[in-house]
Design a protein around this nucleic acid. Structure first.
Lengths: 109, 109
DNA sequence: ACTATACTTAACCATCTGGTTAAGTATAAA
DNA sequence: TTTATACTTAACCAGATGGTTAAGTATAGT
């Protein structure tokens, strides 16, 4: 069952594969922000942030509009949800296994 | 709140960012398999599969033991769960937004 | 008009990814 | 013992990632 474009999932998971980009997404999950605000916690150059933004944007996880010279950024929840759902599709199996694993670990500490 | 090594998450999400590797994981979620069995659905060379296996293994998503000349592969549920949980940590926010989005889309088709 | 701010683009570099073919190792089967 | 099977390693290549510095564009403030 292929619900979403494999390529979109590639881009979404690839975008999640870097701590700066996950940090940006985490920050955005609490509300919109400018590029400068998103960049603040990280000690890399501005162009490095621009590149991360581009990867997030091309993955469809983030969108923005320019207000004056400030770029107002927001999460794109739909694409984010698709990544979540790929994992969720398999969660039943994994959870079955995890339940067994956790029982085992409880009984064999 | 950083529950897991950022680096481990990098590797896990990076490993999820390729359709062949997601296919391998999906197959493994239904039970153990040999490398040849995992490779079967994909029309790439054996060394290409070896590399995908290595990426999955280094991400901690997959383990194996050698029985004779066959490598028996299985999912590593714990690491898989860590990736799931990073998303889950943010799901509350996202779901709030998604709920709002879906209400909006229902009312503004 | 000038200067500072917010951000991007260009050019460069090292490393990783994702594929190939050819060759190698270890086990099983004949 | 010879051969086939299961898989890996080596060597190569193209393209993407992730960082840098230097320079550019557009808007805002003085």
């Amino acid at each position: 069952m292929v619900k979403y474009s494999q390529h979109q999932l590639d881009l979404a998971f690839g975008a999640l594969a870097h701590p700066i980009r996950r940090g940006i997404l985490a920050r955005l999950s609490t509300g919109e922000a400018s590029v400068a605000e998103l960049a603040k916690p990280f000690k890399v150059s501005a162009p490095a942030i621009t590149k991360h933004m581009k990867i997030l944007e091309e993955a469809g996880l983030l969108s923005r509009k320019k207000l004056g010279r400030v770029h107002r950024c927001r999460l794109e929840e739909r694409r984010m949800k698709q990544a979540q759902e790929w994992l969720a599709e398999h969660r039943k199996f994994w959870n079955d296994k995890l339940d067994a694993l956790e029982r085992y670990l409880k009984e064999n500490p």
